[in-house]
Write a protein that binds this DNA or RNA. Sequence first.
DNA 1: AACTCATATTTTGCATGCAAAATCAATAAA
DNA 2: TTTATTGATTTTGCATGCAAAATATGAGTT
Lengths: 216, 216
Amino acid sequence: MSEKTGGPSMTERLEAALVEEIATGQIAPGERLDESVLAQRFGMSRTPVREALNRLVAQGILVPGEKRGVRVAEYTHEELAQIFEAMHEIEAVCAQLAAKRLSLLSRARIETAQAGCLAAAEQGDIPAYLRANEALHMAIYDATENPFIKQMATEFRRRTGPFRAKKFRTKADLIASAQSHMPLIEKIFSTDSHGADAIMRSHMTESFLQVLAANG
Amino acid sequence: MSEKTGGPSMTERLEAALVEEIATGQIAPGERLDESVLAQRFGMSRTPVREALNRLVAQGILVPGEKRGVRVAEYTHEELAQIFEAMHEIEAVCAQLAAKRLSLLSRARIETAQAGCLAAAEQGDIPAYLRANEALHMAIYDATENPFIKQMATEFRRRTGPFRAKKFRTKADLIASAQSHMPLIEKIFSTDSHGADAIMRSHMTESFLQVLAANG
DNA sequence: AACTCATATTTTGCATGCAAAATCAATAAA
DNA sequence: TTTATTGATTTTGCATGCAAAATATGAGTT
């Protein structure tokens, strides 16, 4: 009786495809997206393409081009600093709330995700690490028990995705990253919300500098 | 030679109109929005209506209806608590950053806005107070010097608009609200970021309870 | 009255077409 | 060589139409 009505529409499929391609860098920041080209490439008319592009613009993943069309959001160094600051501030809030509200379930999810990070790092498997890292962050966002804050954090994560991805080049990068999670997780597990917030903040500058280095 | 090309499109006009009508409560939370009806009402075809609705859905102002169409976002008490928590957390971040970075210009803007609040409150002019209050918040968001954080805060403000509006019924409400800004502004002006954050937080529960009371 | 099942109606998602606006290209003038 | 100007071309924004999905309606059955 209660089947989730309706399969994915063309609009939704395109939207998902674009999010994916942008996140993985297949479509680079600054690149222009042409309605008709996309329509042809995905075998649909311009109408659903437009809808998908509109949604992505609303999410800040795409921006209206200076002259025409839309392009993948691209930031100056200053803007990059600002967007990372915003993301880190939200993540600090998340860490704080997670520590304050930690449930057994949340704790288990965070532990599992962190184990996944360590495993992927040990194997030097970058794509696996990216996924595991993502899962860890989501687990922390979930632990806030606030879906609105989670959504906000997730959106910023999407927007910064293309830039963060470049940070990870070697196995050493992965291991360093996975290790750096530990103090934060410990603070969350000991329900030290102030400490969790402080640690998150202390990582901000460092983390941003790495991003900047990786993105010229 | 650098005129901002292009006037507002039909899509943009409808979007703005709907944001306005929803913010002021003319269209109530839960109400269903029909494409064809809107198209007729605003003298345009369904295409631009759809685009506008899509954007508003992406902003969380509208949500996809259970059966069909879209409706104005409506929240349970629990969700209301969550969304206000999210907004307040962001505002706390804003207050902190504003205090940390306060420029002369920002200070002047905040002062002007607060003067406007007091004036409107004295006169018991509710619409004017709402506008002035909005301006004050925007001035504080601007003072963060971070457009991304400002945008995020603004979006939450929009989403909570319909619920906050009901808080103000009498002149006394306005005066109380305007007065309650003072300690926060003082902390910001004395660049006491920790204090600003603390004050913002201390207002959270109180503010939310008022909203809840006003919204059944 | 409650439950099917079939049929009518509404609503959606998408394709297509077109006119206006914006951009580009090419030529002419300074 | 730069600067205007004009015309060609692309791109956009929107209207319209239609088929399929979703929903409401209603008759017939238990």
